[in-house]
Amino acid sequence: METTDKERERAQKLFQAFGEIKDEHVEDAAEHVRPDARSDERTKIDHSLRVRRLNRYLVPLAAALVLAVAAGAFYHVQRTDNAAYSSMDTESAQESDGTEAVASANPYVEAQSAEEAGNLAGVAFNVPDEAEITKILGTSVTAQYFVLDGSLAEADYADADGNALLTIREEAGTDDISGDYTDYPYETTETLTGGAAMTLKGNSEDEFFLATWTDGTDSFSIQALGTGLSLTDIKNIAEQVASGN
């Protein structure tokens, strides 16, 4: 029998009520709702691009929320009858006078060059330039440089359409700084010229998405954000980074 519009409206209310079931039920069923079963990309992070994208609309959106509060326009949020969502927007309202602080709290500082990023972060940060990465990846790239929290230098390489392809990081210390916690099916180790043991992770012996190593003083990571890199290519990049330290 055909569902009527009225029935759909009532069923929609039931569907919305499912949004408030106990967290434990949501979490228990989350096992398979995991990395990108239905997306065209792997679950990896383009750290700086995401933060920059966030900041681009954080201020206007926060301002809009303030106006919405002033206009008493939380009707829609309340109508969704979802505590998680409504509590969030309430907090947005409470922080209305703190939106500037949110926007200005960005720990990412853009540098004009890899050298400047290295100086600001207190590391050597000898990363391949655009031409070298273009040659390795076989596609024209542009690079942007950032310093995170005043200590981590990052180079982001993107193609002509702005798609992030590669991120290289360096920070003093020996911890894993990649931020990539994907459980890759293949892992191996390669020794760099200076003797550092580099951990490589990816899908196979010739498709790598992550390289991490430390020279005992600094920690490094190379993360492929588009397609995976061959062993030759990722090792080539790593050798260039490592040779400057």
Partner: peptide, 19 residues
């Protein structure tokens, strides 16, 4: 108030929420 929270959230749960 460390924006690294966002990148770490996305790394761990990005695929989950997008799905």
């Amino acid at each position: 108030r460390n924006e690294r929270a966002i990148s770490e959230s996305d790394t761990k749960y990005g695929g989950y929420v997008q799905s």
